[in-house]
Write a protein that binds this DNA or RNA. Structure first.
Lengths: 194, 194, 194, 194
DNA sequence: AATGAATGAGAATTCATTCAT
DNA sequence: CATGAATGAATTCTCATTCAT
């Protein structure tokens, strides 16, 4: 057998990393990061405790990585924007896309809310790195324009309401999917806002 | 010297208990129950670790006590209703009262959401004891009637939206009060729903 | 009502002391001294923790008192003996008396064996105080004479056997009374040795 | 450097386990399990507290392991017997073997009696697992036959006496070896019973 | 790269004992 | 004499992290 090439090593590293993140996320989301030990994560991912530290330098680093990974998945939906204007269809698409992500990543959302409430200092560090604001802010600005254009009296307040509604849906759905019927809610919201 | 009367002991116990709860709630809400040690709570309350256990038989019991105490404060707002019908004014009052509680008990709400996400098994035990459902359910039923009467097409979905909106507001406000302008939102919501 | 005389106080003290000892012995014997807290004893005796310390200056002192009290009950049977000779009837009576005490004080015997095994240092202190040896030794000497007179070849070894047999019976009976039929054993032993 | 093989790890584990058990048994036997802290055991074995828990998941588990280990050593003597009959020689051998074990494992016997008295619930759990009864019972049955064959009037009572005598010897010898001259007792007992 | 033995700081909890009243 | 609030040392146990191999 020929020795593995560095490319093959690279592939092993990447897939193993993904594996660790996958298992850690499930455990973290189910029981809270504080209640999951490195041991358990290693066991779930079928690697040794020591190797874990080869991939993530600490438990906090692992959590950060998971949050960041999840963010990039989710922040994509704020992305499009050729011009600077938000159309009805674009907003409808955003809502649709958001709900799609939510359905697909229930577990991540649950973890995200957990961390959000539990250790804001951590989240803030991550948010800065990720420049969350830079991503969401333009979208919010466009939403305000959108509401202004549609003669909404207090567009910033409308934005708040929209934002809180979305948060409430994400929170409730990620915590207890059965309590929220996303399929029914989606058209209702689109009808109301678009 | 005559021994202390049982009434004196009771006073001591009550005030100490309140003291512990006060400090524990602040710490729990700020950093999450899992990240606060009994030691820290005792230090904050300026009592010995041992005394903590004289008042609460475990950390979990302390958390439960705090949650229950907070609940009883909050569930009052679901209360009134002589007849079985919800009027516009009553709904407006409910929204007003809810926001009032929210403003007053930011810390508790933050803790509540935390626990909600972190340890649903715990919350479920408490909720059962507290018969949360028995309290909120009738209100939800009345809200559905309310929407039906007002010719809303899908009253249950409207309820979901209302519920999520309120949750989103409570969540965002308790986490970061500056991000939400309750005073502006209140009339807007009342106007929309009442 | 006239104030209590010092004699009345004396009576209160004595009966309370007895009460504490009674409850403590039961608890100690059932679960082992190390697994019973002062709190529990006080609760069982329906007095306050503080008062306990008025009667016994420490947990160890309480245990000592119990052991001593029990000893004096039991060592009585070694007592009689005007002359220096042990007759058949006297030995038979001793065996009978020993079994009588055993039946009556199962709990104490259990505790005694416990303490014996667990903290010999403690027992030794007590034994010295009580001059256990001074009490049992003359009896053992007489038993040796007794065996010698009856042409037993190795009287000291016979003593050992007798001693071990009695210990074995006491131990088994106190630990699990149902496993030993004292009523049947008594005549058998008397027949063998007297 | 190549990583350690699993066989090497196994060797480490076995030797460490033995080491811990050895030190723990000495300490437990000397002062009683309840009066020995994990700290002390770890110190005696010159390992860290944490490592103890890598080998035994709790103090109780450690105690169980010690008791079980000791049992298997001791219950061997109840073993042989092709046919169902106990001969004089076999009984003599049993007595000899028992005393041999006793001499060799004084410490364990002391611990065994301690645990027996202190926490019967624990012992019962272990005894069940170990099927102590299944081991001793057949032997007892054979002893009864043995006594019956030899025209002993009340064979079950004779068994009781034999049993108590043996217990008494084991107890006294394990507690204070100097008080019992096993070498002299052995032939006496064999002469009497065989 | 991989393993899991080993560490040690720190967490929750218990409890004998003291002491103000 | 009586009470029980209060203390603090000790105990069991957990777990992130390190490191020899």
């Amino acid at each position: 057998m020929s020795p593995r090439t560095s490319k093959q090593f690279e592939q092993i590293r990447t897939s193993r990393r993904t594996l660790i993140i996958k298992h850690a996320m499930t455990l973290f989301a189910d029981r809270g990061p504080a209640n999951v030990s490195i041991n358990e994560i290693a066991a779930a991912a079928k690697i040794s405790k020591g190797l874990m530290y080869n991939y993530f330098k600490s438990k906090e680093a692992l959590l950060k990585a998971i949050i960041l990974e999840g963010f990039s998945e989710i922040t994509e939906i704020f992305d499009p924007d050729r011009d600077g204007v938000l159309t009805r269809d674009e907003l409808a698409f955003f809502i649709h896309a958001l709900f799609g992500k939510l359905r697909k990543n229930k577990k991540f959302w649950r973890l995200y809310f957990m961390v959000m409430f539990q250790s804001q200092h951590l989240i803030k560090k991550i948010l800065t790195e990720n420049e969350m604001n830079d991503i969401a802010q333009p979208f919010f600005t466009k939403l305000i324009n959108y509401f202004t254009t549609r003669k909404i009296k207090y567009p910033e307040h409308e934005l708040m309401l929209f934002h809180c509604l979305m948060d409430g849906i994400c929170m409730n759905y990620s915590m207890n999917p059965k309590s929220i019927d996303l399929d029914k809610l989606e058209p209702l919201i689109i009808k109301r806002y678009c």
